[in-house]
């Protein structure tokens, strides 16, 4: 990989802003206005993040989401719904020039772009591996999922991993296999998912720091360069959150 990688580990943002920032930063990297970048997300509010091609009613119990104060947003990439609360997920995005994955098939590029994560998790003692197409999993259960888009001359690859899980709340909000929220359903989800805290006893920050240093060792010559979202990027994203990602029209693209 190139040796000019930037790191953004910024302020918490509302869900629609994260969606918008992904589009803006992908476009900036594609236009050569920003070097390849790794961004860790901080969540300002809980959310259900739908994949680009999921229907709201098939995936979310909107009434339950409202009751819990959970926003429903739709991202620009495909893949499955994620339920995130502010402190229970580790989410990151990679914005890279297409040369990074040149000659690699779409399916193979998922595993390729997350090799460093599997390495970081293994260094923390987790028996982790990549499960094609887009899952990071382990002997203790699924950890997270990736989604990708090749757009505006760049590759966007983002991942949400479970740090902690409230299975009961998740089953209330997400329609997973139409299961009723029973003790049995909760136990079944708890068995299938292996959140990072349960597997490491580490804080979220410790895990993110390990990921950052693994990425730097593997993919850069002299470390990740600490960076921030520029005022122009922020303004562009705020505009896009207002005119696109925060609108009913976008969120209900597939009702």
């Amino acid at each position: 990989m190139t040796n000019s990688w930037r790191l953004i580990d910024g302020e918490p943002q509302p869900p629609a802003m994260h969606m918008a920032l992904d589009e803006v930063l992908t476009r900036r990297v594609g236009a050569g206005e920003r070097p390849p970048t790794l961004r860790f997300w901080r969540w300002a509010a809980p959310a259900v993040v739908l994949g680009r091609f999921q229907s709201v009613r098939n995936e979310v119990d909107e009434e339950a989401a409202r009751e819990h104060g959970i926003q429903v947003v739709r991202r620009m990439t495909g893949g499955g719904a994620m339920f995130v609360e502010t402190e229970n997920a580790v989410t990151y995005s990679i914005y890279a020039p297409p040369e990074l994955v040149a000659g690699i098939s779409s399916v193979d590029s998922y595993a390729f772009l997350d090799e460093w994560v599997v390495e970081a998790l293994r260094s923390l003692g987790i028996d982790a591996w990549y499960e094609p197409i887009n899952d990071i999993t382990s002997s203790e259960g699924k950890i997270g999922g990736a989604a990708q888009a090749r757009r505006s001359g760049a590759v966007l690859h983002h991942v949400t991993m479970s740090y902690e899980m409230n299975a009961a709340k998740m089953l209330e909000v997400l329609r997973i296999g139409q299961e009723k929220v029973s003790d049995k359903a909760i136990q079944s989800v708890e068995k299938r998912v292996g959140p990072l805290r349960r597997q490491t006893q580490l804080t979220r920050e410790e895990i993110i720091q390990c990921m950052i240093s693994t990425f730097a060792e593997r993919n850069t010559k002299s470390g990740l360069i600490e960076d921030r979202i520029s005022p122009e990027e922020l303004a562009e994203a705020e505009e896009l959150a207002r005119t696109k990602y925060g609108t009913r029209e976008w969120i209900y693209t597939l009702p």
């Binding site: 994949g51 999921q54 229907s55 098939n58 990439t77 495909g78 990708q148 090749r150 597939l254």
Partner: peptide, 28 residues
């Protein structure tokens, strides 16, 4: 990935077809 189809049938034809799921598609 999971594919879902929601649709109606009127006069023997598929209507209001919606295809959704956790798949990936380029361009969207």
């Amino acid at each position: 990935k999971l594919v879902m189809a929601d649709l109606d049938v009127r006069e023997g034809r598929l209507k209001d077809v919606e295809v959704s799921g956790d798949f990936f598609l380029e361009p969207p």
